[in-house]
Amino acid sequence: MLDKVVTSGTFSLDGGTWDVDNNVWLAGDAREVVVIDAAHDARAIAERVGGRAVRAIVCTHAHNDHINAARELAGLTGAPIRLHPADQVLWEQVYGDAVPYEPLADGEKLEAGGVTLEVLHTPGHSPGAVCLHAPDLGVLFSGDTLFKGGPGATGRSYSSFDTIVASIRERLLTLPPETVVHTGHGESTSIRAEAPHLEEWLARGH
């Protein structure tokens, strides 16, 4: 039902560039999938997809390292690109107005191969950041909103610490504690593991 490809490249914003490894998640079955975050290497992602139909290429947010393979992957698969429109300014930094996407809406449900993904708008890391909740699988795809060890970074343009904290508290920590959190970078975690950690992290005044 779930598959992962780790791709490598760079993340650039505010004049800086960093080397990053990204988790690209595939949710679905043997016939069709949704690709979550087309990062760096469209060919590697398409290879993992294999002969399956791609119902959508969902961007959890529009930082370049999460979308820089989306155009090529869409060309290879014929799948629509989906993004929350609040990240338009970041999308334009990569693609201008040359690559269309279909807007994601909070509460929208996406389906592929018997897997239902509910879109949760969780701004903070970026204005249009979303997480995807698959309640039947007990899984959350958190993009860069929540990691093992705390919230995603908010020290760059178009980000807000107060906003990401509100998103995590109100939208994510209310999910079942046993929910597995598959992140945009690094190791997976769980809501149970991160809830107390987040409170301690906040108490330190970061």
Rank of each mutant, 00 (worst) to 15 (best):
S157H: 09
E111G: 05
G205H: 03
I36Y: 13
G9I: 02
R82Y: 13
P100Q: 14
G28D: 04
G186K: 03
V5W: 08
D162T: 11
V99K: 10
K148M: 03
I191P: 05
V165R: 14
H40V: 02
P151C: 00
M1F: 09
H40G: 13
P176C: 05
A98Q: 14
H125E: 07
A134D: 01
T163L: 13
H84K: 09
D41T: 07
H182N: 14
F161K: 15
E47L: 10
T154D: 09
V165K: 12
E194K: 00
W91V: 04
R31A: 15
R48P: 03
F141M: 02
A193N: 13
R71E: 15
W91G: 07
E92A: 15
N64I: 08
G114W: 12
I45D: 04
F161Q: 08
G152H: 07
S8V: 12
S167N: 08
L198W: 00
N23A: 05
E199G: 01
R156Y: 09
A56D: 03
S126C: 07
V181L: 00
H63N: 14
S142K: 06
L76I: 01
A134S: 05
G205S: 02
S167W: 09
E108I: 02
L172N: 00
D29Q: 12
T122Y: 11
G138D: 02
D162H: 13
D37Q: 11
F141C: 08
Q88N: 09
P80S: 03
L2A: 12
H206C: 12
A38P: 10
H185P: 05
A112M: 01
I57P: 01
H125S: 15
T77Q: 08
